[in-house]
Design a protein around this nucleic acid. Structure first.
Lengths: 343, 343
DNA sequence: TCAAGGTGCTAATTCGTATTAGCACTTGAC
DNA sequence: GTCAAGTGCTAATACGAATTAGCACCTTGA
């Protein structure tokens, strides 16, 4: 071992090629301004030294002076890789990675953010997210206070998933849940369903609320009647008899992972899916789930959301004008759990 | 928008409280060294100004001084997130993320590395692995030349998976494939198997070679006889009759994803697994695979490998002495595909 | 021969923080 | 009255790259 490891600096390159640090910087940045000219041979010598040493500018120093790193931070409120929700988040990340690769940016996973109360926090972090040019925010729940602070500080970021204003508009690339849910409600109406129910978590997270609101709005438009239940999986299951007694013929299930347990219970109650009752899955399961039934519902364009989130961020950083709040359409999925009401 | 808001700096705090920037820094870092003392009233005044302005130290400037980024690069020879091999790599990444989080480091995914000939390259124009303090290398195949260059440059890195010397010892956290394979060979011997076969890819990648070498070494020790075949899945399947004719009663399969197709063919040939012949899976499938049979074999401690790789890297960076070449034991998996030989 | 204008480079400074060396002043001892 | 020790603070500098201003050397042309 050589013992002392030191970062190669422009100063080193300068020494090797017999020029000043300024010249190295000029060559690196390929400045063609009038007033700054470098002789071709000098340029060659510098580039050679750079190639030999494999020199790369220190992003931290660069950031001190200029404004860009070509590093995009990815902040997730949960760990990225550990399983659990991984299957849900993976497509978002795939899209993010794809866009980043195309833009020639690296991704900084902000793993060092301390987990406080079961969740990572942005601002308790020594503000390490500031190393990135901007951030992508991923995760269903976002701390409203932190969001507001990001907005207030004019920090460039884009949320994957729609967010309510937080002291100002929040840039996001979300999914059009109201539209997707409305389409499903309309489909159920056409099949003859009149009494519908929404089975949700009661969460106030935008992604949840948007589904719920889309449901109630669609009810009014289609002239159907509906009930909205809120609770954990087990509570929802427990309240099925009550819904059945009420004459409900189609269930709109907020969390698709709940569909199978609900269907199992419904079958036990003498209402098999879809002959006895219809069940609709509003999106993709956010936790691992197996299903015997191919549930009708919609697919969240997760990969595309990730892709566009990076594009929006890139536009924000370049100060280009762009639509910074986007809702992407969800693909309807025609499965086998939505059928005409019995009788 | 507000246009551009200037950061509050220590200089601002200093001006407000009528002290020098140095004093602000000292108060912030609560230095208690002999030689640096701050009067309580002065400290109060400074803290007050900090509270008023909401000042937070710029992490970039902070790191500039520390000359360490607390960024760990993760270089993968393939894209990380897109599916395909994702299921294989995910546990490694989970371990890496876990250790990084514990150490307070962020992960830089080197997504900007250009893909040349279907594979990312470390040394190539524009690769920015030097942004990180050090790197974790992930991927079955590694370019020997690139590895040698990293070693020669004394760049801090750790390979996940054992690597042969490359002009010097390569730091790695690998799996003890020879040991794991030997244990399985011994188990087969105890059950009465005498003629064994190794079905492999013929790849020279260390992870593959180690299994193969472990097999032949174990043969010698246990007094069994064995054949080593090399080929793609289809070729291996085609040569099954020849092995059966040869009296082989146990197959050691390098790529676990091959086990099911092999078993299917064996059943068709009148040798169902395990009654007619035993099949052993040497590790975890590196490509998506479904299996009807629970194959006996071993599990690669992928998560732990990722975890320890980051730990080793951290030790290297801190110039602490540590075992920089580690082989972790694999857990044996007792499935249903290894039984006494027929007859 | 000397100014004008072009060419090729560098010194000095900037960014915000941490650290080192040391200055100016007080107190106390003799 | 002088020296030593102690106290409370600051000036200067480093970190690594980018940028601004400008210097020395060359050609030209009159």
């Amino acid at each position: 071992m050589t013992g002392h490891r030191r970062r190669v600096t422009q100063q080193d390159i300068a020494r090797i090629s017999g020029v000043s640090q300024t010249t190295v910087s000029l060559v690196l940045n390929n400045r063609l301004d009038a007033g700054t000219r470098i002789a071709p041979e000098t340029r060659e010598r510098v580039l050679e030294a750079i190639a030999e040493t494999g020199y790369v500018a220190d992003p931290v120093a660069r950031r001190m002076v200029a404004r860009r790193n070509r590093i995009i931070g990815v902040f997730t409120y949960e760990a990225v890789f550990p399983s659990g929700t991984r299957d849900f988040y993976q497509p978002f990340l795939a899209g993010i990675e794809e866009s980043a690769e195309r833009l020639g940016c690296d991704l900084l996973l902000l793993t060092s953010a301390p987990v406080v109360a079961g969740r990572r926090r942005i601002f308790d972090d020594g503000n390490r997210f500031r190393l990135a040019d901007g951030c992508i925010l991923l995760g269903r729940e976002t701390d409203a206070g932190e969001l507001a602070r990001l907005v207030a500080e004019d920090y460039p970021f884009v949320s994957v998933g729609r967010r309510d204003d937080a002291g100002g508009p929040v840039p996001y690339v979300g999914a059009d849940y109201p539209g997707a849910v409305a389409a499903l409600v309309a489909g159920a109406r056409e099949l003859g369903h009149r009494r519908l129910a929404y089975l949700g978590s009661g969460s106030r997270a935008e992604s949840r609320a948007d589904r719920r609101d889309g449901f109630t709005a669609a009810l009014a438009r289609t002239g159907a009647t509906g009930t909205v239940l809120a609770g954990e999986t087990q509570e929802l299951i427990a309240r099925l008899p009550e819904l059945l007694a009420d004459g409900v013929t189609a269930l709109f299930v907020e969390e698709p992972a709940d569909c199978q347990p609900l269907a199992d219970r419904l079958a036990a109650l003498g209402h098999p899916v879809p002959a006895g009752i219809s069940v609709v899955a509003l999106g993709d399961p956010t936790r691992p789930a197996t299903a015997d039934i191919d549930f009708t519902g919609f697919r969240i364009p997760r990969r595309e959301m990730g892709r566009q989130a990076v594009e929006v961020l890139s536009a924000l950083l370049a100060e280009e004008s762009t639509t910074a709040q986007r809702l992407l359409a969800c693909d309807g999925h025609r499965g086998a759990s939505l059928a005409p009401p019995p009788g």
